[in-house]
Design a protein around this nucleic acid. Structure first.
Length: 528
RNA sequence: GGCCCCGUGGUCUAGCGGUAAAGAUUCCGGCUUUUCAAGCCGUGAGACGCCGGUUCGAGUCCGGUCGGGGCUACCA
């Protein structure tokens, strides 16, 4: 008899009142393989206790906020992120990493990074590097790791041996075709059961119970039960002794003292297998939380086909890590009061994996853009300049800083910044369409007067420039746009730029006058 | 095929049997006597997959059905 401790799903309404219910139940197994379940629900947490752990004011830092209220679990809170390095870290993986990180920080626990590299075909050092790079960019850190799962092969073999000796597992030479044939004979819904063999080169299978259900008490989905009769005796170790995923994961999670497994929904169906492995090993399983999967705009599983599918692509597209974290956190989770924009600290304080929703979400870049724009605008100029510099591969010098100052409230992504300020760093090319649209003959007259007026503008700052240009406007009795647009084209080459006064000031007096003169020259050249 | 998960405006969330289903984003219109954005405003547009059942009353509970997804490897 062994015990599963599990924390039942905490209803939102309850958590809102800061009352957390908890329950533990025992799952025992009859000799025949019947599962017995005794529900021992208990409202362990009284008001007194909930007061002890009530949420601190928002200013408080990342101290443990809500401690695990499961009396069975005194071990420190420990989660893990366990990606398999078979490619770049995509958005779904990034969200899983973030949720693990947030929960670890929220609980004041630890995060372990474990690389699931037992697939020797597909796992490459380069992919590991990419994952580390992505996590680094997202500014997610961890207490332990990166640990290599492949490096633990010896321990895995040992565990297989243990099960073989105890009779929980057996050697079976059957191959995939044999299993299929067996199922043809016994009915599709019957789980495969093999014949033990002495063949030392045969794969090792775990014996599944013939009756009852294996229950996963998921923090997000509640109780999910899987009929044992339906499950195959599955292979835990290959003929050569190397182990398979569902076995390695169970052994590692147990060995590493993981208390909570937060991972994608695609692992929900694997969980009963892992639970059974742990039971055979005689260890206590962790709590589980299976996150709904993320999908692309077409509703299909996220893949390279969809725009920015990897973290690297997000970075290259000019998004801010803080904005990406905020957006990802909101994909599947929300606050009770509809708050959308949150600092990372606020995320840590408010996030609770038990509040994550059950339905899959679609990655929507439009909302990310909006959110990113909000973060961009609220950044201190210093920080903004550095982010822009890093993105452009330039130095965050005075010139860039000045350019950033006039463009900060206009761009939604880092990528949009350069086109708006490049005219400050190089002589612009006139955009033919822009020229044709605004540089009419009347515009040339206005430009001539504006240039003359600007010569007297001192100091050459936005305020003075505006005041200097006002009389020109009045004199010709035209709408502001009639004057400003030609100036804009003259100094920036196009019809879109930051505010015209700020742009002139940032360019400087001599360059501004010189460019207006150039436009004038070009204008007269065209008309003659 | 078998087992499992999911289904509220285009998208993300709220809604926990009882006022005209709420917020965010998006789109549309307007304002900001400088472009493009941003911002602000709007009694603007847009949703409970479908069918039954329980109930005085269902987006909310039950059954079925359809749709999407996952697992079903000596992959992870």
């Amino acid at each position: 008899m062994w015990i599963i401790t599990a924390c039942s799903r905490v209803p939102r309404a309850a958590s809102r009142k800061a009352v957390k219910s908890s329950s533990a139940y025992f799952v025992g197994r009859h000799m025949r393989g019947l599962w017995l379940k005794i529900w021992i629900a208990s409202e362990v947490v009284s008001w007194a206790r909930s007061n002890t752990f009530s949420r601190p004011p928002l200013v408080e830092t990342w101290a443990p906020i809500s401690m695990s209220d499961d009396p069975q679990t005194d071990s420190p809170f420990r989660v893990r992120f366990a990606p398999s390095p078979t490619g770049a870290l995509h958005i779904g993986g990034a969200r899983t990493a973030l949720y693990n990180w947030l929960q670890a920080r929220h609980q004041g626990g630890e995060l372990v990074l474990r690389i699931e590299d037992t697939d020797r075909e597909r796992s490459t050092p380069d992919n590991v590097e990419q994952i580390l790079d992505a996590l680094g960019w997202l500014e997610l850190d961890w207490e332990e790791g990166p640990l290599s799962q492949a490096a633990r092969a010896e321990r895995h073999r040992e565990a297989v041996e243990q099960l073989l000796e105890g009779g929980a597992a057996y050697r079976d030479p059957a191959m995939a075709d044999d299993v299929r044939a067996w199922k043809e004979r016994h009915g599709k819904q019957r789980g495969y059961r093999g014949e033990p063999s002495d063949d030392e080169t045969a794969a090792v299978r775990l014996r599944m119970p013939d009756g009852g259900d294996t229950v996963v008490d998921d923090l997000i989905r509640g109780e999910v039960r899987f009929p044992n009769a339906n499950a195959d005796d599955f292979v835990i170790a290959r003929g050569d002794g190397s182990v398979l995923y569902n076995f390695a994961v169970a052994v590692d999670d147990a060995d590493m003292g993981i208390t909570d497994v937060i991972r994608g929904d695609d692992h929900l169906s694997n969980t009963p297998k892992q639970l059974l492995v742990m039971e055979a090993l005689g260890v206590e399983p962790p709590r589980y939380a299976h996150l709904p999967l993320l999908h692309g705009p077409d509703g299909k599983k996220l893949s390279k086909r969809h725009g920015a599918a990897s973290v690297q692509e997000l970075r290259d597209a000019g998004y801010l890590p803080a904005a990406v974290r905020n957006y990802l956190a909101l994909l599947g989770w929300g606050t009770d009061d509809d708050t959308t924009i949150m600092s990372t600290q606020e995320l840590v304080e408010r996030f609770d994996v038990g509040d994550v929703g059950t339905s899959s979400a679609i990655f929507d870049e439009q909302k990310l853009r909006w959110l990113n724009g909000r973060f961009m605008r609220e950044m201190p100029l210093e920080e903004y300049t550095e982010a822009v510099a890093r993105h452009l591969g330039r130095e965050p010098d005075e010139a860039l800083r000045a350019a950033c100052a006039i463009v900060q409230d206009k761009a939604q992504t880092l990528d949009e910044v350069w086109p708006l300020i490049s005219f400050l760093f190089a002589e612009p090319e006139y955009d033919p369409k822009a020229w044709k649209k605004v540089m009419k003959d009347s515009a040339m007259t206005l430009l001539t007067d504006a240039r003359a007026a600007l010569e007297g503008a001192e100091p050459f700052d936005a305020e003075t420039i505006e005041a200097t240009l006002a009389p020109v406007l009045a004199e010709h009795d035209v709408k502001p746009g009639k004057l400003y647009q030609p100036i804009r084209v003259a100094i920036s080459g196009g019809t879109v730029s930051p505010g015209i006064f700020e742009s002139l000031a940032a360019l400087g007096k001599s360059a501004s006058l010189q460019r207006i003169q150039r436009a004038l020259d070009e204008g007269s050249a065209v008309s003659t």
